[in-house]
């Protein structure tokens, strides 16, 4: 096993939820059904990769990400982050991962953003020099100084997302999980965020796992793809290889022009490719 170069290893992950179905009002008998959100997924992600993790709504992406970040506990299977297991080394892993949820903020809602940063500085034992260097960098690229002293409730969505991204990177995590980081963000801000992510990846060799519904995010950032559908992994490989095999399957019907990734993804979700 090649553990020195793999940053995430998922082995036979499974997670199911019990769902209550109430049909016909409160008095109807309760029925429970088991929904298998993730069934038997295994993959390995190498250090320094940017991996696009895609799937239609409800395919099991979020559940998988939540298991990888230690929020949900898998029913079976195991996860290794830098060779460490959540069951034994939870704290150690948490020191090494950064997470951004596009749909929720990790920042304290009512108090200035900078306070949350100071909290993380102590929580992750960040030395002063690294903290200051990072803050400078965030100021340069993400315009942090514009909204640093405001509480998140007063920020625009774009500012909030940048602040969240900065908060996840202030402690130099080795692995960065981004769950729909560009949802609801305007084109310019999106570009900034993407540039920032690829810069971090280049300079720090941070592994990035990105879920998104925005195809341009994937085109701009990802070297590798994981495609999930109905809880199972459909594809695990490079973006290039995926495009190639699509071109082979669909011949030259697209002509010689560049293959449209959105087209490929549509076909995958419809079940006619992969």
């Amino acid at each position: 096993m090649n553990t020195d170069n793999s940053s995430i290893e998922a082995i036979e992950l499974r997670k199911s939820f019990k769902v209550k179905n109430r049909e016909g009002g409160i008095l109807a008998a309760k029925k429970y059904s088991q929904i298998e959100a993730v069934k038997d997924i295994s993959f390995t992600i190498q250090k320094g990769d940017i991996v696009g993790f895609i799937g239609s709504n409800g395919a099991g992406k979020s559940t998988t990400i939540k298991m990888l970040t230690g929020i949900l506990i898998p029913d079976s299977g195991s996860i290794r982050i830098n060779g460490l297991d959540y069951r034994k080394k939870r704290r150690e892993i948490m020191m090494k991962i950064g997470v951004v949820f596009g749909q929720r903020s990790v920042l304290c809602w009512d108090i200035p953003v900078i306070e949350s940063f100071r909290l993380f500085k102590d929580m992750y034992y960040i030395p002063n020099e690294i903290y200051n260097k990072n803050m400078e960098m965030f100021t340069d690229i993400l315009n942090l100084q514009e909204y640093m002293y405001k509480p998140p409730r007063l920020l625009s969505l774009g500012q909030r997302m940048k602040a969240d991204l900065a908060a996840a990177l202030i402690y130099n995590p080795e692995i960065l999980f981004l769950d729909e980081p560009t949802i609801g963000i305007d084109v310019l801000a999106k570009d900034r965020i993407r540039d920032f992510i690829s810069q971090i990846n280049r300079e720090r060799h941070t592994t990035v796992i990105l879920t998104t519904h925005d195809v341009s995010d994937i085109e701009a950032l990802c070297h590798k793809m994981l495609v999930i559908d109905r809880g199972s992994l459909l594809y695990d490989g490079s973006l290039e290889a995926m495009k190639k095999s699509y071109a082979i399957q669909y011949g030259n019907s697209q002509g010689e022009e560049e293959i449209n990734l959105e087209q490929i993804i549509k076909h995958i979700y419809e079940g006619s490719f992969l």
Binding site: K66, G70, I71, E92, V99, F101, R104, M123, Y124
Partner: peptide
């Protein structure tokens, strides 16, 4: 709200 997720990822 599910915001507990943002606390559970902390060391």
């Amino acid at each position: 709200s599910g915001n507990i997720a943002t606390e559970l990822i902390r060391p």
